[in-house]
Simulated scan of single mutants.
Amino acid sequence: MSARVFIVYYSLYGHVHAMAQAVAEGVRDAGLEAELFRVPETLPDEVIEKMGAKSFQKEFQKLPVITPDELAKADAIIFGTPTRFGNMSSQMRSFLDATGGIWSRGALAGKVGSVFTSSGTQHGGQESTILSMHITLLHHGMIIAGLPYTFAGQTTMDEITGCSPYGASTIAGGSGERFPSANELAGARYQGRYVAWIARQLAGKQNEFLS
């Protein structure tokens, strides 16, 4: 049975977007279609312009906006968010806070959940951001998938790099000047492929457990 893999994310300057594209490549490498969505923006246009993000946002906002109910159509959901003081962005938090309806129905129980992120500095909260999102996914009954150590790139000592066993990540730099490295993109592709592989094994079987 085929499985549907959603990549649901928020990106302000494009770093998470670049990682999402690599995650999607990994899903496709595993033989599944990657469906990309963005969560609703909560910042006014004038604020986005003052933050210097208007140029990228013109492209990013072409992506379809997902609704909480649509999440239930996926067999696996890979969430992406920038780090905000060691936690997810307010846009992602606002979206997840609106998923009470599908939570009450157990609509995500037994589905695969995974997270990738971006932070401004090497120790800027990448791991805590992913782990804090895992809490919400566990409340939904999702099966958490991280980035296994079989992706050897996360143990490299040759360069500064993101990625951890919790999920792929990138370091954007204090001014957003650094975009994902080849190693970080490789980690994102690996995570996408890994999640797609798990989703294929579980596709259509959630109801067996829930019935």
Rank of each mutant, 00 (worst) to 15 (best):
S2L: 09
S2Y: 09
V5T: 08
F6P: 08
Y9V: 12
H15F: 05
V16M: 08
Q21C: 12
V23A: 00
E25F: 09
G26H: 02
G26A: 01
V27Y: 03
A30S: 07
E33W: 11
T42N: 13
D45H: 14
E46T: 12
V47H: 10
V47E: 14
A53E: 02
S55K: 13
F56L: 08
K58S: 11
E59K: 13
E59Y: 13
F60M: 04
Q61N: 14
L63P: 01
P64W: 03
P68M: 06
D69Q: 14
A72I: 06
A72N: 09
A76H: 07
I78N: 06
F79M: 10
G80S: 10
T81G: 06
P82H: 05
S89M: 09
Q91N: 06
M92G: 09
R93D: 15
T99S: 05
G101Q: 07
G101M: 08
I102S: 03
W103G: 13
S104C: 07
G106S: 07
L108M: 11
A109L: 15
K111G: 03
V112D: 00
G113W: 03
F116P: 05
Q122V: 15
H123T: 13
G125E: 05
T129N: 08
L131K: 09
M133Y: 04
H134C: 12
H134Y: 15
T136M: 12
L138Y: 10
H139G: 08
H139D: 06
H140A: 10
A145P: 07
A145L: 13
A145I: 13
P148R: 01
T150R: 06
G153S: 03
T155S: 15
E159K: 01
P165A: 02
Y166E: 11
G167L: 06
A168F: 00
T170V: 09
I171Y: 02
G174I: 15
E177Y: 00
R178V: 02
F179Y: 15
S181Q: 01
S181Y: 00
L185G: 00
A186T: 01
A186H: 00
A186D: 04
A186C: 02
R189N: 00
A196D: 01
W197P: 10
R200F: 09
R200Y: 08
Q201T: 10
A203P: 10
K205G: 10
F209K: 11
F209Y: 11
S211Y: 13
